[in-house]
Computed example of a mutant assay.
Amino acid sequence: MNQNDIRHIAIIIGSMRTGGAERAALNLCNEFISKGIRCDLVLLHREGAFLKKVSAYCTVIDLKCPRAIQAFWPLKKYFKSNKPDAVIAIQNHVQLMTLLAWKSAGNKSLLVLNEQSTPSMNLGRTGMKNFLLRILIKRFFPKASAITAVSEASAHDLSSFIPGIKNRIRVIPNPVITDELKSQMHSDPNPALSVEDGIPLVISAGRLAESKDFSVLIKAVAELRKKKKLKLMILGEGPERIKLEGLALKLNMKDDFLLPGISENPWSYMSRADVFVLPSRYEGFPFVLAEAMACGCPVISTDCPGGSAEILDQGKFGRLVPVGDHMEMARAIELTLNEGRNNKESIMSRAENFHSKKIAEAYIDLFSELKDEKEY
């Protein structure tokens, strides 16, 4: 079995808004096309900033479904009309509708569900919606051809969450590193943000949400600022913006706290920062951590549930600190700043393990393996 046996791949996701799942879909789609494989990007609703980065050779299909529950019939029609060789479905609500439509259409394609999160954390919250999702996922996920988890931790969590599914899970990291990243990280950043004024820059990035725990990072930098001048930049947008701005003001960080929103080129800041810190409470596979490493930036992460520790090889390529401990985070930042970029080359080399070309090849190999098993 070789790549030529997989000629048509569909990637199904809600939209192309700026997020880790959407970036995974974008990078995989573009890599499949670069390998000469036809790729359909099937969206429940055609919207999002990443749309403009999708290859012109990709077929973008808009199902015009504001809600996943409305997507069953459009997806069934898609499967009957297009008959892709393989399908990757991302995001739990999308995956459930894809599974039902795929089974109903009697399609012979391979269906792989890509789990981006840590299910026990992501679906463990209270509420009727999460309760129903847990029941449906346990009932229907085992019917897929395979499930890919973005880290060993995510795979273990998923196998504990859905009994009897362990043998169906494959670990394939997210496709993070791209040629675009490598070319744009050397671009000049916005001069108005003054990131090259000689003051050490601590940087982070992600959705401004409670799970990312940026308040702990602000407290850590404020603590360290008692000893030395520091600047903190957090790239991203979300519901916690006002709370984070208020905390920075309370801790007298107003003049050295930058919250510029979403950046189309976060890598130009990462390549110039003195340290990148990921303070999350839990993760699936944090794109931004691997991206910072690809930019040669020293990194620190919380030792949270998910793939962060695996990316850093259990602390070999960056310090791990306890979740929610701003004092330990402050100490780690100080030690990392004192060391400088002595291990830049090894950090960048580690990030190459998550190059989108390598990850796309891993998916093609998985499809070939599954097709061989099916034919046998």
Rank of each mutant, 00 (worst) to 15 (best):
residue 44 L to V: 03
residue 235 L to V: 02
residue 63 L to Y: 10
residue 262 I to F: 12
residue 334 E to I: 07
residue 288 V to T: 06
residue 153 A to N: 11
residue 183 S to R: 12
residue 323 V to S: 07
residue 326 H to N: 12
residue 131 F to T: 08
residue 228 K to M: 13
residue 140 F to P: 03
residue 20 G to N: 07
residue 239 P to H: 13
residue 110 L to F: 08
residue 169 I to C: 00
residue 79 F to C: 06
residue 189 P to W: 05
residue 80 K to E: 14
residue 237 E to T: 02
residue 141 F to N: 01
residue 129 K to S: 10
residue 335 L to I: 14
residue 325 D to M: 04
residue 249 L to R: 15
residue 202 V to K: 02
residue 254 K to M: 10
residue 179 D to Q: 15
residue 315 G to M: 08
residue 257 F to T: 01
residue 45 H to Y: 12
residue 150 V to K: 05
residue 349 S to K: 14
residue 181 L to G: 05
residue 207 R to Q: 15
residue 269 Y to N: 05
residue 327 M to Q: 15
residue 369 E to W: 01
residue 375 E to C: 08
residue 191 P to L: 07
residue 301 S to P: 01
residue 72 F to Y: 05
residue 169 I to D: 00
residue 176 V to P: 08
residue 87 V to A: 13
residue 133 L to I: 05
residue 49 A to K: 12
residue 320 L to Q: 04
residue 83 K to A: 14
residue 44 L to T: 01
residue 89 A to Q: 06
residue 25 A to P: 04
residue 147 I to P: 00
residue 222 A to E: 08
residue 80 K to C: 12
residue 156 H to A: 13
residue 120 S to I: 03
residue 198 G to F: 03
residue 357 K to W: 10
residue 153 A to P: 04
residue 252 N to C: 06
residue 305 P to V: 01
residue 259 L to R: 03
residue 185 M to I: 04
residue 217 L to Q: 05
residue 203 I to V: 11
residue 238 G to H: 05
residue 145 S to E: 01
residue 308 S to W: 02
residue 66 P to A: 11
residue 42 V to P: 12
residue 219 K to I: 03
residue 128 M to T: 12
residue 298 P to V: 00
residue 52 K to D: 15
residue 79 F to L: 04
residue 97 M to R: 06
residue 74 P to M: 04
residue 230 L to N: 14
residue 190 N to L: 06
residue 201 L to Y: 14
residue 125 R to C: 14
residue 303 D to M: 05
residue 286 P to R: 01
residue 46 R to K: 10
residue 62 D to L: 05
residue 47 E to W: 06
residue 342 N to H: 14
residue 312 L to W: 09
residue 183 S to L: 13
residue 167 N to A: 15
residue 206 G to A: 00
residue 56 A to W: 12
residue 200 P to I: 06
residue 223 E to Q: 10
residue 319 R to K: 14
residue 288 V to C: 12
residue 106 G to A: 09
residue 54 V to H: 03
residue 98 T to N: 10
residue 44 L to S: 07
residue 175 P to M: 03
residue 312 L to R: 00
residue 88 I to P: 12
residue 279 P to C: 04
residue 42 V to D: 14
residue 284 G to T: 02
residue 232 L to W: 03
residue 365 D to T: 08
residue 215 S to R: 11
residue 78 Y to T: 04
residue 250 K to D: 14
residue 276 F to Y: 09
residue 370 L to Y: 00
residue 12 I to T: 07
residue 329 M to W: 04
residue 39 C to V: 03
residue 76 K to P: 08
residue 96 L to W: 07
residue 9 I to V: 15
residue 7 R to C: 11
residue 339 E to K: 13
residue 280 S to R: 03
residue 73 W to S: 10
residue 41 L to P: 06
residue 338 N to R: 13
residue 250 K to I: 02
residue 112 V to W: 07
residue 17 R to C: 12
residue 299 V to E: 06
residue 286 P to Y: 01
residue 7 R to S: 13
residue 109 S to K: 01
residue 258 L to R: 09
residue 72 F to S: 05
residue 304 C to T: 02
residue 47 E to N: 15
residue 338 N to G: 12
residue 76 K to L: 13
residue 272 R to W: 09
residue 6 I to Q: 11
residue 353 N to F: 09
residue 48 G to H: 03
residue 135 I to D: 12
residue 62 D to S: 02
residue 30 N to D: 09
residue 172 I to T: 02
residue 142 P to R: 00
residue 182 K to I: 08
residue 1 M to W: 07
residue 177 I to K: 11
residue 216 V to S: 14
residue 185 M to N: 05
residue 367 F to M: 02
residue 367 F to C: 06
residue 350 R to C: 11
